[in-house]
Design a protein around this nucleic acid. Structure first.
Lengths: 210, 210
DNA sequence: TAAAACATACCAACCATTCGGTTTTATTTT
DNA sequence: AAAATAAAACCGAATGGTTGGTATGTTTTA
């Protein structure tokens, strides 16, 4: 059980992180102004700069916080999803994928895209520190699928690059989010993830034994 | 044949558009400052504001110009690619996809991501006019594949949603570009597009007749 | 010779950050 | 437990550099 009452400082910090994540997800890094952030978080600039060295420092903290939160949320959603019938690790990977899809859909109701995707798009080619960290985030996302995919491949005695497929999954998710924002169509994400699952299933049925 | 000599005004305008496209692709909309643009394009702010009402107006013009250019470049690259063996429209779609891949790879050598993807990420949830236009751009990209996919489906008497698949292709491209920027790995785009082709090929071999 | 194209100086709003001071919280002393 | 002290948290006005855009005048082109 978590502490029921948190110190004021922790609350302030968390509120800033939460609002910043929202704003970064909706407006991106460069269009999010410190001033509007402190208004949204209902703190003063003094409080903000007490907790963070600056906007860059904040962004890094937001990323860290987001990745932790994300993992927990994903676990929670996944637990609410029906157990897969058999013991096929592929179905476990798909379950995780469904959970990710569900999370995306829930988030999108508040508008905005993927926080990591937004930051990656805005900063990858100008800020090496961010590029590196965001690459790790994508790796972390992919890693969630990789193990199960590797197992599934081993079970079938298939010679597939499970890391590559895991990355592919992340690409599809990010791409689908990007498109869904312009089309204002949340179904698109679900639709495309469905297709992705079918494609992967087929590729694991194909005869490509070693 | 194009005019060998263009009026100074047209040249200026084009130079601004070209540099703006580069900057938007690398740094995104909000991090591209008018000041650095006019320096990159070697024009004065007077010239810039004579040709464009402002930054927003410029962005729209850049999008239009980019989409025209893109179509032409794609056609040119495609012509340089080997003709597909049979008369399968699916192979035509794949050829177009290879051309798109080649274009992405060439561009990425100069750093930066997809101009449309960047703008979509930065503006979709805050600027409805841009969201609409960028959605059309994605539709246009998808449309290039849709016809061939529909034909291929008809040939095989398959009941598939070719528009959905076409959009899926765009998602994968955009997602792959996003990831490749953080990983600094151009091979990733090619790799993932290869996988996409295999997946589509399999899905067109699958028995899903109507 | 009129209009289009371009140059230059200028500006007001914006924006991330700083800084001196105040309040709250935690720790130690009495 | 109360008082004293230290440290962390917070406040908000001020700052200085940036930024998109304008106004006015000059050159080029049709």
């Amino acid at each position: 059980m978590r502490d029921l009452k948190q110190s004021r400082a922790v609350q302030t910090r968390k509120k800033i992180l939460r609002e910043a994540a929202q704003l970064f997800a909706r407006k991106g890094f460069h269009d999010t102004k410190v001033d509007e952030l402190i208004k949204a978080a209902e703190v003063t600039s003094g409080a903000f700069f007490h907790h963070f060295k600056g906007k860059d420092d904040l962004a890094i903290a937001v990323i860290d916080h987001h990745m932790e939160q994300r993992g927990r949320t994903l676990d929670r959603i996944e637990k609410g999803l029906p157990e897969p019938d058999g013991s096929d690790p592929l179905e476990l990977a798909f379950r995780r994928l469904d959970a990710a899809c569900e999370m995306v859909v829930r988030r999108r109701n508040r508008k905005g895209g993927c926080l990591i995707g937004n930051l990656a798009t805005a900063l990858s080619d100008t800020r090496p520190e961010f590029r590196k960290r965001l690459g790790e985030c994508f790796d972390e996302m992919a890693a969630e699928f990789e193990i199960n995919l590797a197992e599934a491949a081993a079970d079938r005695d298939l010679d597939v690059d499970s890391r590559e497929i895991a990355r592919y999954i992340v690409s599809v998710i990010e791409g689908a989010i990007m498109l869904s924002r312009t089309q204002r169509d949340l179904g698109l994400v679900q639709q495309q993830i469905q297709r992705l699952k079918e494609d992967i299933r087929r590729s694991f049925q194909a005869e490509v034994p070693r």
